[in-house]
């Protein structure tokens, strides 16, 4: 009898131990999820938190991990959040710089006339087809706003 009782109590204890984890994880998950920003998904397994989703910047990513770590019962945090790639802004050269650089780039094309205004390079005159691609390559590297090509191609 004694042995059976002991076994029974052990079974119950073990069951409670295993089942006990689940509600605890769920509670931690709910608590962290409520504090995290939108777009962040929180998963908790045996006190180990995994963060997934996409955030705007590194600071938000770091803060999300701190929030998770601060929660009671959390053993560790796996931060799998990704940072949204930001678009590189379009850089357009200032007119004085552009005017000087366009003059340098077009110097070897005597039949080409170039004017610069508000970042727009206006090309007039004529050019050989073979030289056009070279000229365009040179000008495109100078960060113009636009290349207005009115050249007559011979």
């Amino acid at each position: 009898m004694k042995t059976t009782k002991l076994l029974m109590s052990m079974v119950i204890a073990t069951t409670l131990f295993f089942v006990g984890c689940k509600p605890k994880d769920a509670a931690i998950q709910a608590a962290i999820q409520a504090k995290e920003a939108a777009g962040i998904t929180v998963a908790v397994t045996k006190g180990e938190v995994t963060l997934t989703g996409e955030v705007d910047d590194e600071a938000t990513k770091a803060k999300a991990a701190e929030i998770a770590k601060a929660e009671k019962g959390v053993k560790s945090v796996i931060n799998n959040l990704t940072v949204k790639p930001t678009d590189v802004p379009v850089v357009i050269a200032e007119d004085p710089t552009l005017i000087k650089n366009v003059a340098d780039a077009t110097k070897d094309f005597p039949t080409v006339k170039a004017e610069v205004k508000d970042g727009v390079v206006l090309l007039t005159g004529e050019i050989k087809k073979a030289s056009l691609i070279t000229l365009m390559q040179h000008l495109s590297a100078l960060k113009p706003k636009k290349i207005d090509n009115k050249l007559t191609v011979k």
């Binding site: 087809k129 056009l132 691609i133 390559q137 960060k143 207005d148 090509n149």
Partner: peptide, 19 residues
């Protein structure tokens, strides 16, 4: 640049800066 030239022959559109 060859591909660019095929889409916009002689680069006359002025709607692309390929750097």
């Amino acid at each position: 640049w060859e591909v660019y030239n095929q889409i916009d022959p002689n680069f006359t559109s002025g709607d692309l800066v390929l750097n």
